[in-house]
């Protein structure tokens, strides 16, 4: 896997200040209950998703350390997982990460044009964040939306059959609403 961002340097002072919200800690405890006694490591992936949503959309080494403490694991067990999966951000990202699928069917139906259009519109390249911290543009591999290509994902939301007009509307709406989009958001209902 190529989550090649590398883990940032650990800051013990910052570590002391981190604590997740009560609802987040509650859902983490609920998740741990699913697994047999002693197998709480199984909660790793769902807990990291919660951690990311609690931490401005990215996992700092201090947050990873805190997750290790919650799950009773060595920090390295958490680091190695966080660096393997492409949905965990190991460096800061914008409030809205626009993840454009670029694999075969999407690419056949204009994924490159989508990336170029968004890039020009926001004046950033793939992998970059706008200076106001609102948008990050990212190219990703197949999101299982090949029949409604081209498409992009932002947090929990799938935006399919993209056109320039749809992209314009989407970006305008995100700017207006001005909030962070997380994978764990509950409010998305696919209209397709």
């Amino acid at each position: 896997m190529s989550n090649e961002q590398g883990v940032k340097k650990f800051d013990p002072e910052k570590r002391k200040t981190i604590r997740f919200s009560e609802p987040a800690l509650e859902s983490i405890q609920k998740i741990i209950q699913r697994y047999p006694a002693g197998k709480q490591k199984s909660a790793m992936l769902p807990v990291l998703h919660i951690a990311q949503a609690e931490s401005d959309g990215w996992l700092s080494p201090e947050v990873l350390d805190y997750v290790a403490e919650i799950l009773g694991l060595l920090p390295v067990e958490v680091y190695e997982v966080a660096s393997f999966y492409s949905m965990y951000n190991l460096k800061p990202v914008g409030k809205c990460v626009l993840e454009v699928c670029q694999t075969s069917s999407c690419w056949t139906r204009g994924a490159e044009d989508v990336v170029e259009y968004i890039g020009k519109k926001l004046n950033i390249k793939a992998g970059e964040t706008t200076s106001d911290g609102m948008f990050t543009l990212k190219t990703v591999e197949c999101l299982g939306s090949c029949g409604t290509a081209p498409m992009l994902q932002c947090g929990a939301e799938y935006h399919e059959n993209l056109t320039e007009e749809r992209i314009d509307n989407l970006i305008e709406r995100y700017r207006k609403e001005d909030r962070r989009r997380n994978y764990t958001d509950l409010d998305f209902v696919n209209s397709n």
């Binding site: 896997m1 699913r34 199984s42 992936l45 769902p46 990291l48 998703h49 393997f84 999966y85 492409s86 949905m87 965990y88 990703v140 591999e141 197949c142």
Partner: peptide
């Protein structure tokens, strides 16, 4: 139970 992954084809 439903368990979510985190982005890995493998």
């Amino acid at each position: 139970y439903v368990q979510v992954g985190a982005g890995a084809y493998i």
